[in-house]
Structure formats: structure tokens, C-alpha cells
Design a protein around this nucleic acid. Sequence first.
DNA 1: TATTATAGTATCGACTCAATACTAACAATA
DNA 2: TATTGTTAGTATTGAGTCGATACTATAATA
Lengths: 186, 186
Amino acid sequence: MSLTNILNLVDSIGNLLRSEEKKFLQPLGLQPIHLHVLMYLSMCNKYSNNPAALTKYLGNTKGTTSQSINVLESKGYLVKQKSKKDKRIVKLYLTEQATEIIKKLSFEDSEDFFNDRSMEITENVLTNILKSLQLSNQSMTFGICKTCDFFIDEGDGFRCGLTEEVLFDYEIDLVCQEHESELQDI
Amino acid sequence: MSLTNILNLVDSIGNLLRSEEKKFLQPLGLQPIHLHVLMYLSMCNKYSNNPAALTKYLGNTKGTTSQSINVLESKGYLVKQKSKKDKRIVKLYLTEQATEIIKKLSFEDSEDFFNDRSMEITENVLTNILKSLQLSNQSMTFGICKTCDFFIDEGDGFRCGLTEEVLFDYEIDLVCQEHESELQDI
DNA sequence: TATTATAGTATCGACTCAATACTAACAATA
DNA sequence: TATTGTTAGTATTGAGTCGATACTATAATA
């Protein structure tokens, strides 16, 4: 029972998921990287749906990211829109065509497969592993809004302590590139 | 607490590991796929260190695998050797140069980070997730020798029930392409 | 022996990716 | 306001991966 074992398992599951992804994407003429872009955009918030955040998330160069985006745009999976606040920034929005693909690839929960307590512990361990890896590599944390240190619950609503903006209910479960937090206890 | 959450975590950790891998591999002139080949060869047994098994494991075509192997061979990371039993089969062996790279990339265990019971449960849940994914996709299981249904403990030694061959101690922790097993209880 | 199946290779075109150089927009300062 | 530097993103090009196809060599089978 060691961290190495767990990381090897994570890697094996990842390999398998990617291998299955490939079979699914082939007929659509898409590459794995394109699906990762779509997945990211489907779960990130309004501060994080731009090429720069994608570049950090994917670990590619910005030129490479730019090309991946162009491919997806030309195939109708996303649309670009210049930010009005800062005209250098491009906002990326998924099309209906893209969200349908993502829906097909999401897993239906088989709740009866493991007991709740085991799932909870597993989720906690993995969350902490992810965070400690992110910390030790000085990479962006890209966590979920509501788990961020900047997140403020005002009782009658939510607010981001960094941008000072009000957050709608649906936004607090999305991934943010500005996410910051300490490790949780288990 | 759901399977989807856990798979998303697995995916995120996988993305991060790959992103870090890339930074490490860049100066060596290697691609991620090459590292996966080396990793696989470092943990597979004598029935599984051939291009065909690699092809199944990686989910690529055999032509693609052949090219990846050639790149690694030309850079001195592995050597080929024709099987004497079956002259169609090529055995792949890692060089010293390759094992050094793998050593650098393996994680040192930080045992104090999580408690043993949590780690054990996590490992178990992930193992079962992996197995059920493998089953539902009819993909090769590629499990560890000693967890295989063909594995025989004879008291004074070990044996493979499929090939009938005697197994040395160091072999029973290696990955085998012929691995078969049922799901474990948790 | 003839046929079929298996293991692996060679070649080529499509495509990804990194590197480089570039433009446009913003920010800071004098 | 003009200057300088920074940030966000794009365009181009060359190296290299990958998949498809066609191929050789060996083994298994009828």
C-alpha cells in the first residue's frame, strides 16, 4: 500500500481511458488533444475559457494550443469571441455539437459498485495527491470554485474574493485557473 | 462522492503527470509515447516484452508501435532479440540507459502523508475500477502475475498454470499480457 | 504440401507539436 | 502624449508521430 502503487494505478486507468477515447475519436476525425480541450472548456468557468488558461492546463506551448483551437473551430466544435474588457483576450465557447460528444463520453454512475465510505476516502486521497503534485510542481491548481480560498459564501449568495464578482449557483462547481487552496485533512 | 468524480480526479492527475513528463522528456529528445514504452517494458514479464503485447497495451497499431520501438532502439534505450522458440517473435530488453531514466521518474514514497488504511482502500477501489473498465471494454487486463487466476503457489515455489513454467520470485510482481482474474471484494 | 494465421517491418500521407517570429492591445512611466 | 515593456494570441515551418496499406517471414493447420 504505497503512493507509488496508487500512482501506477492512476496511470493504468488513464492509459485505458485514453485508449478507449482514441477508438471513439477516430471516426470523428479528432485527436485526443482535441477532446481534452473540449473537456476542459466544458468544466471551466468564465475566467478560464481562454487560450492562455488552456495552454497552462495542457502543458503545451501557446502556439500549439492556438492550432488545436483552430482545428476545433474549423470543425464547428467551438466559437471564439473577443473579450470586451480586454481586447487581447479571446473567449472560447463550446457549440451544441461539442457538448453532445462530451455527454456521450461521461460515465453513468454505478452507485452500487462500491460502498459510499470507500468512495469518499478514495476521492479524498486522490484530491490530496492531486493538490500535492500541483504544489510540488508549481503548476496551476485549476480547482473547483467553491473549494478555493477566495470563495466567499455570503449566506444569500456567493462571491469571488479575487475578482469581487458575484457568482451564480451554477458557477461554483466549475474549474478556475486562479484557484488556490491548502491541503485538506482526511 | 461518485465514480464520475473519481474518474475525473484520475484524469486530472494523469494530465498533470503527463504535463510534467513532457518537461522531463523534452531535453532527452523523447516523446511521451517512448516513455510509456520504457515504463511498460520495465514492469512486464517474459511473456509480454514483445511488440504485439506493447501494441495491445498502448492501443496503437502495430506499425506505429514498430516505429516507436525503432526510435528507442536507435537512441540506445532498448535492444531487440529474436525469440528462439518462435522466430517471428522479437523480445525487447531495456538498456542501462533506459532503466536510469525510469529510476529518475519514479516517486519516492512519502508514507507519512496519508494513513495506511486510506491508502489501502484507495488502492482497492482503483484496482476494481481498473478491472471493471478492462472487462467492459474487452481489453487486455495486463495484471500482475501473482494476482492472476493462472498463478499457482506450490509452497516451495511458484508456477504459471497457463504456460506450466516455474516462476522465480522476482517474476511474480511483473505485468503479464495473459493476466486473467475476477473482481476482488473490498 | 497448400493454405491460412500470426508477428513484425517499410513506406507514405496527414497531422501534431515546438520553435521562432510576428501583431495587437494593454500597462507603466516620464 | 510618447515611450517602453509586457501580455495574449497568431502564422509559419520543420521534425516527428501516427494510421493505413502493403509487404516478408515464420508457424499452425487442413
